[in-house]
């Protein structure tokens, strides 16, 4: 089976030759191809090279255009610093206060420098994939993008102090995410990852009011445009699982502290769980044997939801090759 057949067979409830490996690579891929991270996130050709090599050498069953959270923020007009070999960031938030929200306007993704760079990455991935590897695009969810624009602490305060204004901000970020997701699907993405990391910090009551409606609507728009949805919320989402079950996502990434068994009990059977061993304590710092054991555990406990295998979050930059290879080896051994 090729990667496309493997993933879609699993998603359709069939039995693939082995479980799909959907490990997320960013910094690791840049290091693998020998370029500083600043260049990797700025040039789609390098990002594609990293994705292609990770597919070929480590058995990742997708080409994924994820790199960093700041592409849309830059498109909105934030001044984004791209360090030579570190993660892009904004020194000063674009939105200093809730009164600045009205100045924000969603843009045509093709007109944003690094948003367009991601579209070019997706196009190149689609060409290379030739129907044999799923192509995964990526957008920031409304909560995550709001934090990128406002600063995470300010957002967390303002969600309590100015809920109406925050709803306005979320609606703008949601609209940008819809445009970006549709543009990536048009460019060839089969699946769109929605990164909404900060949503794990707000608890179920605020999640239900401020995160779920936008994630759900975004998933609906992606489905309508012909894509599948991979929801990625890093961190401890145990208290959110019941609500996440209602997002309509096809694949839900679970970080390593989330109880996969509980998720399988809560999620509908056609909502696929992806995860979820510890990226740092196990993948980066463990041994190949330890990693194989962790992969086996994940394979057993999530089977009810036709699960997919990955560490709980990004593969760390300095992960030893033999550790990363152990994931593929264990998946192939069963």
């Amino acid at each position: 089976m090729n990667s496309y057949e493997r993933l879609y067979t699993r998603l359709d409830g069939g039995k693939p030759d082995r479980l799909p490996n959907l490990s997320l690579v960013m910094f690791f891929a840049a290091k693998l191809i020998g370029v500083p991270f600043g260049k990797y996130v700025s040039d789609y050709r390098l990002l594609c090279e990293g994705a292609f090599r990770c597919h070929e050498e480590f058995g990742i069953d997708m080409f994924c255009a994820i790199s960093d959270p700041m592409r849309e923020a830059e498109g909105f007009g934030a001044v984004v610093t791209i360090p030579d070999d570190n993660v892009p960031y904004s020194k000063a938030p674009l939105i200093g206060s809730v009164s600045d929200i009205g100045k924000l306007h969603p843009i045509d993704p093709a007109s944003g420098r690094r948003m367009n760079d991601r579209l070019l990455a997706v196009q190149k991935m689609k060409e290379k994939a030739a129907g044999k590897v799923p192509v995964v695009g990526w957008v920031e969810g409304a909560i995550a993008e709001s934090c990128d624009l406002m600063g995470i602490s300010e957002f967390m305060l303002n969600i309590m102090l100015y809920p109406d204004e925050i709803r306005e901000l979320l609606a703008i970020c949601y609209e940008q995410a819809v445009r970006f997701a549709k543009a990536q699907i048009a460019a060839g993405a089969d699946i769109i990852g929605i990164g909404d990391a900060a949503a794990s910090l707000i608890g179920p009551a605020l999640y239900e009011e401020f995160a779920l409606p936008y994630e759900k609507k975004l998933a609906g728009e992606i489905h309508a445009a012909g894509g599948l949805v991979k929801l990625h919320i890093c961190g401890n989402t145990n208290s959110l699982l019941t609500l996440m079950a209602d997002t309509g996502a096809d694949i839900v990434d679970l970080d390593h502290m989330v109880d996969m068994n509980q998720a399988a009990n809560i999620f509908p059977a056609d909502m696929h769980i992806c995860g979820n061993f510890d990226p740092s304590g196990v993948l980066l710092r463990g041994t190949p044997d330890r990693i194989r054991e962790a992969v086996r555990t994940c394979m057993q406990i999530g089977d009810r939801n036709a699960n997919l295998i990955a560490p709980g979050c990004e593969v760390p930059r300095d992960t030893p090759f033999e550790n990363f290879l152990a994931i593929r080896e264990e998946l192939s051994a069963v």
Binding site: S153, M156, L157, I159, M160, L161, L201, I202, G203, S239
Partner: peptide, 14 residues
């Protein structure tokens, strides 16, 4: 205990 989350802590700190 997982009864409140980051926004509630930040608003209390304020």
């Amino acid at each position: 205990a997982g009864e409140v989350f980051v926004p509630e802590v930040l608003i209390a700190a304020r």
